[in-house]
């Protein structure tokens, strides 16, 4: 064990670590409910708790800008889209069906196996690594924006083209039926 881990023991956690673990428990619990609840709309609402908790975790990791982007895009846009999708495909809201396939036990086996393997490897590899969050100037909007528009400009612009393509694709996909019908009428 090196000096960093000897300095910061696992048995004397800091306040940030306690907060991180507590919020992490909330995140994991609500994520479990997302994948196990039988009410499809409740799954989307538990997803809000999971994603909001993750935003708090980003704040604790001093990634301030990422946290707000997470709240804006995931909690604000993605969950609303998912709820739209649920309401358009499941007419009776709150309709509970056997949401899980018969393959639940194999799925749980695969997931548990992958999780156990990864946890073992990661704990073994990073047991002594310590995250110094002393200066909180790493994740501010200013720093992130500067690196984004100085270093990562080209990927950023390519990404905006990708978003445009996805937007047009979604519009075309959801309009195609109406277009075909009106073409037939003409």
């Amino acid at each position: 064990m090196n000096l960093a881990a000897a300095e910061h023991g696992f048995l004397s956690p800091t306040g940030a670590e306690i907060a991180f673990v507590l919020i992490g428990l909330v995140v994991l619990g609500s994520a479990l409910l997302v994948v196990t609840t039988r009410q499809v709309v409740h799954a989307a609402l538990w997803l809000v708790v999971t994603l909001g908790g993750l935003a708090a975790e980003y704040l604790l990791l001093t990634a301030e800008f990422i946290a707000w982007v997470q709240v804006l895009i995931y909690v604000g846009a993605v969950v609303v889209l998912l709820l739209f999708g649920l309401m358009l495909t499941k007419a009776p809201i709150g309709y509970s069906e056997p949401a899980d396939r018969a393959a639940r036990i194999p799925a749980a086996t695969v997931a548990l196996g992958a999780t156990a393997t990864l946890v073992t490897v990661i704990v073994d590899a990073f047991r002594t690594a310590y995250l110094h969050l002393g200066d909180d100037t790493v994740g501010t909007t200013k720093v992130t924006g500067e690196s984004l528009f100085k270093v990562w400009v080209l990927p950023f612009e390519v990404l905006s083209v990708l978003l445009l393509a996805a937007l047009i694709g979604a519009v075309v996909l959801s309009r195609s039926r109406a277009r075909a019908r009106s073409d037939r009428k003409d």
């Binding site: 991180f20 994991l28 604790l60 548990l112 047991r127 690594a129 310590y130 995250l131 969050l133």
Partner: peptide, 17 residues
């Protein structure tokens, strides 16, 4: 903060997903 906390959280979340 120990790096293990966020990493284990990520692994568990990935397993649930």
């Amino acid at each position: 903060m120990h790096l293990v906390y966020p990493l284990v959280l990520a692994v568990l979340l990935f397993g649930i997903g």
